[in-house]
C-alpha cells in the first residue's frame, strides 16, 4: 500500500496526492513514513507564499498567479489555509471561490486546509504538505496563509518568495510593524488600489521600509551579534534584495504584470543566492529545526496523553509531591522514543 501511494504521488496522481495530504493533515503515522520516502524527490518546486489579513485580496491575486504560471505551462498547486473556529473546531474554507475557474484544469491542484490550531500551531504540517506536492512534480506551489502566527511564519520560511498583501484603510501598515511582517516580505502588495487611501498606504510602507534598511545597515556594520539559535529563527533571504511595494487592483487584474515580474526577479535572486553553500545551509538548518521542533512536541504530547500520564503528573503536582520543573524533566526523560 505504502509504495503504491508513493509511486502514484510521484507520478502526480491527484487522488493519491489528495489522500496523502489528508494523512499529513490528520497527523497519521503513515504520513511520516511516506514523507521520508518522498523527501529525496523534493527541492524542484518554486514555492511562493502569499500572506496578509483576511479580505486583503490574497485569493483573488492567487487566482491571477495560477493563470500566469499556467500560461507558461507549469503545473501549479495551491495550498490555501484558513483559520479554524476556536469555538467549534470547525472551519469554512472559502478560498476556492475565487479560483474555481481552474477547478477542472489537470495542471492545477488546489487544496484547502484549516489551521486546526494544533497545540498553538507548534505542530502545523503545512511544510510537509508543501514537500509532498514538491515531490509530486508540482512546479509552482502557491501557499496562501492568514496573518503571521507561528505556523504561518514556518511556512513562509519554507517559501522562496513571500508576498505580503495589504489593503488600504485596514490599518495594515500598523499591523505590519507589530507582527514583524517587514522581515518576512520579499514583495509588498497594496491591493484594492481602486479604493481611497492606496497611495498613502504605499507611502507609509515605503517609509517604514527605508527605516528598516537603515537599521539593518547599522546591524551589519556592527558585525555578527546573533547566536546560532537566533539566526535560525530568522528568515533566510538573499542579501541585497530590496522589497518593492506594488499596487494592484486584483478584481480587475491591474498591476498583475508588475507583480509577476517582481516574482520572477526575486526568484532569479533566490537561485543566485543558492549558489552560496552557506545560504543553502542556513535554509536547511531552518527546515531541520522546524521538523525537529514538531517531532519533539508531537512525541511529548503523545507521551502525555498516553495512559493518563498527564493526569498522574498533575495529581502529583496537586498533592504537593513535586514541583513542575522536576516533573517536566522527568517526563522528558520518560519520552525517549525510538
Amino acid at each position: 500500500m505504502s509504495t503504491e501511494i508513493v509511486q502514484k504521488v510521484l507520478a502526480g496522481d491527484v487522488r493519491a496526492t489528495a489522500r496523502l495530504l489528508r494523512w499529513i493533515d490528520d497527523g497519521r503515522g503513515e504520513a511520516r513514513r511516506l514523507l521520508k520516502v518522498l523527501y529525496p524527490r523534493t527541492g524542484r518546486a518554486r514555492i511562493i507564499g502569499i500572506t496578509g489579513n483576511p479580505g486583503a485580496g490574497k485569493s483573488t491575486l492567487t487566482d491571477h498567479l495560477i493563470r500566469y504560471f499556467r500560461s507558461r505551462d507549469l503545473r501549479v498547486a495551491v495550498v490555501a489555509i484558513d483559520p479554524t473556529s476556536p469555538f467549534s473546531g470547525g472551519a469554512i474554507l472559502g478560498d476556492r471561490i475565487r479560483m474555481q475557474e481552474h477547478a477542472t484544469d489537470d495542471g492545477v491542484f488546489i487544496r484547502s486546509f484549516a489551521t486546526r490550531g494544533h497545540l498553538g500551531g507548534l505542530t502545523s504540517t503545512t511544510s510537509d504538505v508543501v514537500h509532498a506536492l514538491d515531490a509530486g512534480g508540482w512546479q509552482v506551489i502557491l501557499v496562501e496563509t492568514v496573518g503571521v502566527g507561528q505556523d504561518e511564519v514556518d511556512v513562509q520560511r519554507l517559501a522562496q518568495t513571500t508576498v505580503v498583501v495589504m489593503a488600504p484603510g485596514m490599518g495594515d501598515e500598523i499591523q505590519a510593524i507589530k507582527a514583524g511582517v517587514l522581515e518576512i516580505a520579499d514583495i509588498f502588495v497594496v491591493n484594492k488600489a481602486d479604493r481611497e487611501g492606496a497611495d498613502r498606504t504605499v507611502r507609509e510602507l515605503q517609509m517604514m521600509l527605508d527605516l528598516e534598511k537603515v537599521t539593518q545597515a547599522e546591524l551589519a556594520h556592527h558585525g555578527p551579534v546573533q547566536s546560532l539559535l537566533a539566526a535560525a529563527e530568522q528568515r533566510v533571504s538573499p542579501a541585497g534584495w530590496v522589497p518593492p511595494v506594488l499596487k494592484t487592483t486584483a478584481v480587475r487584474g491591474e498591476g498583475l504584470d508588475e507583480l509577476c515580474r517582481a516574482l520572477d526577479d526575486h526568484h532569479q535572486v533566490f537561485l543566485d543566492a543558492c549558489r552560496d553553500p552557506q545560504f543553502v545551509q542556513a535554509r536547511l538548518r531552518q527546515q531541520f529545526l522546524d521538523v525537529f521542533r514538531r517531532t519533539l512536541v508531537a512525541r511529548g504530547w503523545s507521551y502525555l496523553v498516553h495512559e493518563d500520564h498527564l493526569k498522574q503528573i498533575v495529581d502529583r503536582l496537586q498533592r504537593g509531591e513535586a514541583d513542575p520543573y522536576t516533573l517536566a524533566e522527568e517526563a522528558v526523560k520518560a519520552v525517549g522514543g525510538p
Partner: peptide, 13 residues
C-alpha cells in the same frame, strides 16, 4: 451549521 458542528466545510460559491 456544519462548521459550528466542528466540521471542515469547503465552500465554492
Amino acid at each position: 451549521s456544519l462548521r459550528d458542528a466542528g466540521m471542515e466545510v469547503i465552500y465554492t460559491g
